[in-house]
């Protein structure tokens, strides 16, 4: 059941290939905007790079949250999922992982390329990718709670960001902090381990909370 949900969602995502690319291009555009805004000065850009990349990743993953449940909600498959004997949080976990595979992983793959734009040294790029790899699933997991709560609401998109952004802040702090710590020489292991802790915690709690939120929204 779990794999079936992931497979099904990936299939759906592949059919509307555009959705996958829009999130990716949004990320690329936002990241490339900053040097234009701030100026081409190299050291400044290098200092800003992790923060810019992480904020852009945050916004990109949040934009695509909307679609996580809404398509199933509209055509009624979500109700079938609620009625299915499988534990709902497992189904939700499947959907969240599918969402992460579609939006999170492309970000992680493209991040090093964009890092070069910010003239980041090689080790910083590595740490950045690692932190994004650990962080983006947490963004999808916590975002799922917001998406489930605002299902079918008018102005849901803006509302999700209002609900979910404060909860993203710890991930942002340690994500961007990891790269900075490694460039300063402190070593990013502490930050990455904390990101891992966030990942594990949200893996346990987020699906359960999202399931509860879905039941509330679907009443």
């Amino acid at each position: 059941m779990f794999l079936w949900v992931i497979q099904r969602d990936l299939l759906l995502a592949m059919r509307q290939r555009a959705d996958v690319l829009t999130t990716l291009f949004f990320f690329i555009i936002v990241v490339s905007l900053f040097p234009l805004g701030v100026g081409p000065e190299i050291n400044m850009l290098r200092a800003m790079a992790p923060g810019v990349m992480w904020v852009a990743a945050l916004l990109a993953s949040m934009l695509s949250l909307e679609r996580m449940f809404s398509s199933d909600y509209l055509d009624g498959t979500l109700e079938q999922m609620l009625l299915s004997p499988q534990p709902l949080s497992l189904v939700v976990l499947g959907k969240v992982l599918a969402h992460w595979l579609v939006t999170g992983v492309p970000l992680v793959l493209i991040a090093p390329v964009l890092g070069i734009q910010f003239n980041l040294p090689m080790d910083a790029l590595l740490v950045l990718t690692a932190s994004l790899l650990l962080g983006t699933p947490v963004l999808s997991l916590i975002g799922a709670i917001g998406a489930a709560l605002t299902l079918g609401l008018r102005g849901g998109g803006v509302l999700v960001s209002l609900l979910v952004l404060p909860l993203y802040i710890p991930v942002l702090i340690f994500g961007a902090g990891a790269v900075e710590a490694s460039s300063v020489g402190l070593g990013a292991s502490t930050h990455l381990s904390l990101l891992g802790a966030f990942l594990l915690a949200s893996l346990v709690f987020a699906p359960w909370a999202t399931a509860a939120a879905l039941r509330i929204s679907m009443e």
């Binding site: 709560l149 605002t150 609401l153 008018r154 849901g156 509302l159 209002l162 404060p166």
Partner: peptide, 8 residues
């Protein structure tokens, strides 16, 4: 966020 959600 709490108040906005309840208002929506």
């Amino acid at each position: 966020g709490f108040m906005a959600l309840q208002a929506a």
